[in-house]
């Protein structure tokens, strides 16, 4: 971790302004913000640790626990909401056996929701890693996540 952190820190001027971009890079590298990394960032840019933590916890993008291999994001935007996103979220939660904000024990999946992913015309939609899946139905949820579940049961 030391080495990757140093590489990130050396590519930025050690200014308070750069705190958010640095944290974003750290998360990009590790998938979340490890406590040790935040401590090191605080020391490097000369900010109190409490402030770094305060900033990191303010923004929804930052995570403090490791991510699953696959990141599932359910859009909860207005268009998705009126077209049944709540039902989709329930179905995915049931299929994966985890709730919103959780990661499965085998670190296969992390389930998140987003305020809006901006594909409102194709609602309801979800993102599986970086790909948007449009016009979701409980049947499509079954196709995406059902098999995995069956596999585990066997």
């Amino acid at each position: 971790m030391e080495e990757q952190l140093n590489a990130i820190l050396s590519s930025y001027e050690k200014r308070r302004d750069n705190l958010i971009p640095i944290l974003q890079q750290v998360q990009e590298e590790f998938g979340y913000l490890p406590e040790d990394a935040m401590l090191k960032v605080a020391r490097a840019i000369g900010m109190p640790e409490s402030r770094v933590y305060a900033v990191a916890t303010f923004y929804t993008m930052f995570r403090f626990t490791p991510m699953g291999k696959n990141r599932i994001t359910i859009c909860r935007g207005t268009a998705c909401h009126v077209r049944g996103a709540t039902r989709i979220l329930e179905e995915v939660e049931q299929k994966l056996g985890i709730k919103e904000g959780e990661t499965s024990e085998d670190l296969e999946y992390t389930l998140e929701t987003a305020a809006c992913i901006g594909c409102c015309a194709l609602a309801p939609c979800i993102m599986i890693n970086d790909d948007v899946q449009a016009k979701l139905t409980p049947k499509k949820v079954e196709e995406f996540f059902g098999k995995e579940k069956k596999h585990e049961v066997q």
Partner: peptide
């Protein structure tokens, strides 16, 4: 920072 749910014109 288009954040309104249901809006995607800036994107």
């Amino acid at each position: 920072d288009e954040g309104d749910p249901g809006a995607f014109m800036d994107r």
